[in-house]
Design a binder for these strands. Structure first.
Length: 312
DNA sequence: TTTACTGT
């Protein structure tokens, strides 16, 4: 039997918006069979400065909330999805895909404190600029996006980093961007999902978000599966077919909940509820080659995609 | 409110 199964009618909206609705199937294999601490300890002995890879010095007020713990350690405490080209920014962490000139993933840690209104931070003062920490062969540039019809879509959202102007500025590095359909997606349904993640900080102590692009296979007329995507500009910046967001919410008492979203990079009807795009985390892990929050036992989640989980 | 583009 084919390993590629149509994932179900619930995802029809994804396929309909993006084209043929083929999907990575998955078996009923145990979700918690993954090796414990696959990446744990790797970064425990490496200083945040060593990971920085970027010469801009963060001002003193950007110290982590807990001065004994580097910010990167707070953001990544439940595991790195992968270890390729990792850079720690002031308030988010990125793994950069040098071949596609977009991120593999970005991780953020949201709290109500850090999202509080700050009159000192003005998004309109921010400008998109290329990332000098990326080798010049692999950087995306503004000219790649200009006239392409695609937005420079933030993976780590600007609206999530309002503690200082510096934090906000760093989200405008082009290494943090991927081409997104503007109207109907980046400025609408995707924006709604980002806004929803911020809203979660009203009811949870911490919200951990991992975001990134996907390039999913589609069945073509010959019946075979192909991965096909447009590339933009002189640097051939890849246009992802989909984007994912994996969200872990932590309560004051240390309970965890997980939600995982997968959206097509296409205009989405405004009336479509976000819950339409909930998929099992495993679908995104198999499609991306990443493992999310792998330091957290799968059994620690009290709720997954809005449903209470009984592990006993 | 936040997301960004295009044209001036």
């Amino acid at each position: 039997m084919s390993r590629l199964l149509h994932y179900g009618s619930r995802l029809a909206a994804l396929g309909a918006a993006a084209g043929t609705g083929w999907w990575f199937g998955f078996t009923s294999r145990e979700l918690d069979g993954l090796p414990e601490g696959l990446f744990s300890g790797v970064f425990g002995k490496v200083s945040a400065a060593a990971l920085q890879g970027y010469s801009m010095q963060a001002p003193a007020e950007l110290a982590p909330l807990n001065p004994d713990v580097p910010r990167v350690t707070e953001i990544m405490q439940y595991g790195f999805p992968s270890l390729n080209n990792v850079r720690a920014r002031a308030d988010y962490v990125i793994s950069y895909d040098a071949r596609n000139r977009v991120p593999y993933w970005v991780c953020e840690h949201l709290t109500a404190d850090r999202l509080a209104k700050n009159p000192d931070v003005d998004r309109s003062k921010c400008d998109f600029h290329e990332d000098p920490s990326i080798h010049e062969y692999f950087r995306s540039e503004n000219q790649d996006y200009k006239g392409s019809g695609f937005d420079r879509g933030h993976m780590a959202a600007a609206g999530n980093h309002k503690l200082s102007q510096f934090d906000c500025n760093q989200t405008f590095l082009l290494s943090n961007m991927a081409p997104q359909v503007g109207k109907g997606f980046n400025r609408d349904k995707w924006n709604e999902l980002e806004s929803y993640c911020r809203k979660l900080t009203r009811s949870y102590a911490s919200v951990y978000v991992c975001t990134g692009p996907l390039y999913l296979p589609r069945q073509e007329e010959d019946g075979k599966l192909y991965v096909k995507y447009q590339v933009l500009g002189p640097n051939h910046v890849a246009v992802p077919t989909h984007f994912f967001k994996v969200v872990v919410c932590e309560t004051q008492s240390g309970d965890f909940e997980l939600e995982s979203y997968l959206l097509p990079n296409a205009a989405i009807e405004d009336s479509t509820p976000l819950t339409t795009f909930l998929v099992p985390e495993e679908v995104i892990e198999r499609a991306s080659g990443l493992l999310f929050f792998d330091k957290l036992s799968k059994k620690s989640f009290k709720k997954i995609n809005g449903k209470k989980v009984g592990w006993f």
